[in-house]
Simulated scan of single mutants.
Amino acid sequence: MPTFYVGWARCFFRTGTRDWLNYEGPDTCRRWQLVNFSKLASKDRADFFFPIPLRALWVLPALYLLGLICVALWPTPVDASARGALDSVLAWLHSVGVPNFVGYDLVEFGANIALFIPLGLLMGFGLRRFWLAVGFGVLATSLIEASQWLFLPQRFASGFDILANSLGALLGALCWLLWSRSRRKVRAEGQDSAPIGS
């Protein structure tokens, strides 16, 4: 059963269909790719696969960007109120065998990476160029750290934050690149398999 859902999930990312009730395996996915493949990008097909209006999906990146701005330019460190609880959790983890190098600095570094992954992904979709998306992420985090250094005395600008955020943007842009290449490959396969003269 888990294999079935893994196969369906892969088919979803390749074709966009959520019709898991009629999914019977890889052969089903290949048939879906070939039947009416040219309509996959059309509005009618998009509306069939995604009942929620596509314009409404822009609410999610808008909320993310708003949250990113708030986190980046908040006058005081956003984790100040949670520092005590985080230290307690880390102390417990160390007591049960988690290595001591897993500390606050590592958690903060990982959080900064995760924070910028969606930005790299969004810039990939928006700019359609991998290195432009990565460059935008590096520029954004550099401006944020410069703003903290110049205008927010209670915040601490750090080169490690720039590095972590840049890595996050890189990972997000890489996710977009892999998705984009997969879609182009599927589109090429569909066109090659289409009957001549269709």
Rank of each mutant, 00 (worst) to 15 (best):
residue 26 P to E: 13
residue 27 D to W: 10
residue 27 D to S: 13
residue 27 D to H: 14
residue 28 T to S: 15
residue 29 C to M: 11
residue 30 R to T: 04
residue 31 R to H: 15
residue 32 W to N: 05
residue 34 L to M: 09
residue 36 N to S: 14
residue 37 F to N: 04
residue 37 F to P: 01
residue 39 K to G: 00
residue 40 L to I: 10
residue 40 L to C: 05
residue 40 L to N: 09
residue 41 A to K: 08
residue 42 S to T: 14
residue 43 K to M: 11
residue 44 D to L: 11
residue 44 D to Q: 14
residue 46 A to K: 05
residue 46 A to D: 02
residue 49 F to Y: 15
residue 50 F to T: 12
residue 50 F to G: 02
residue 51 P to D: 07
residue 52 I to N: 04
residue 52 I to A: 10
residue 53 P to K: 09
residue 53 P to G: 08
residue 54 L to S: 07
residue 54 L to K: 13
residue 56 A to R: 11
residue 56 A to K: 11
residue 56 A to P: 00
residue 56 A to T: 13
residue 57 L to K: 12
residue 59 V to M: 12
residue 59 V to S: 08
residue 60 L to W: 11
residue 63 L to R: 10
residue 63 L to V: 15
residue 64 Y to C: 03
residue 64 Y to E: 01
residue 65 L to H: 06
residue 66 L to A: 09
residue 66 L to T: 13
residue 68 L to G: 06
residue 69 I to K: 02
residue 70 C to V: 15
residue 71 V to S: 02
residue 71 V to W: 01
residue 72 A to W: 01
residue 73 L to V: 09
residue 74 W to P: 02
residue 74 W to Y: 15
residue 74 W to Q: 04
residue 75 P to C: 08
residue 76 T to D: 10
residue 76 T to K: 11
residue 77 P to M: 08
residue 77 P to G: 08
residue 78 V to T: 14
residue 78 V to E: 00
residue 78 V to P: 00
residue 79 D to F: 06
residue 79 D to M: 12
residue 80 A to R: 15
residue 81 S to K: 12
residue 81 S to V: 13
residue 84 G to S: 08
residue 84 G to D: 07
residue 86 L to E: 05
residue 87 D to K: 10
residue 88 S to L: 12
residue 88 S to F: 08
residue 89 V to I: 12
residue 89 V to M: 15
residue 89 V to W: 14
residue 90 L to S: 07
residue 90 L to V: 13
residue 91 A to G: 13
residue 92 W to S: 06
residue 92 W to P: 00
residue 93 L to S: 07
residue 93 L to H: 01
residue 93 L to R: 01
residue 93 L to G: 01
residue 94 H to L: 15
residue 95 S to H: 13
residue 95 S to F: 07
residue 98 V to Q: 13
residue 99 P to A: 12
residue 99 P to S: 12
residue 99 P to T: 08
residue 99 P to F: 09
residue 101 F to P: 06
residue 101 F to T: 10
residue 102 V to H: 10
residue 105 D to K: 08
residue 105 D to V: 07
residue 105 D to S: 09
residue 107 V to M: 10
residue 107 V to H: 00
residue 108 E to W: 04
residue 109 F to S: 00
residue 113 I to L: 09
residue 113 I to G: 02
residue 113 I to A: 06
residue 114 A to I: 13
residue 114 A to D: 03
residue 115 L to D: 02
residue 116 F to Q: 00
residue 116 F to W: 04
residue 117 I to G: 01
residue 118 P to W: 03
residue 119 L to Y: 05
residue 120 G to N: 01
residue 120 G to E: 02
residue 120 G to P: 03
residue 123 M to I: 07
residue 124 G to Y: 01
residue 124 G to N: 04
residue 124 G to P: 01
residue 125 F to Y: 13
residue 125 F to P: 01
residue 125 F to M: 10
residue 126 G to S: 14
residue 126 G to I: 12
residue 127 L to H: 07
residue 128 R to L: 09
residue 128 R to C: 03
residue 129 R to V: 03
residue 130 F to D: 03
residue 130 F to E: 03
residue 132 L to G: 05
residue 133 A to K: 05
residue 134 V to W: 02
residue 134 V to S: 03
residue 135 G to P: 02
residue 135 G to H: 05
residue 137 G to P: 04
residue 137 G to H: 04
residue 137 G to E: 01
residue 138 V to R: 03
residue 138 V to N: 02
residue 138 V to E: 00
residue 139 L to A: 14
residue 139 L to W: 11
residue 140 A to N: 05
residue 140 A to I: 06
residue 141 T to F: 05
residue 143 L to N: 06
residue 145 E to A: 05
residue 146 A to R: 05
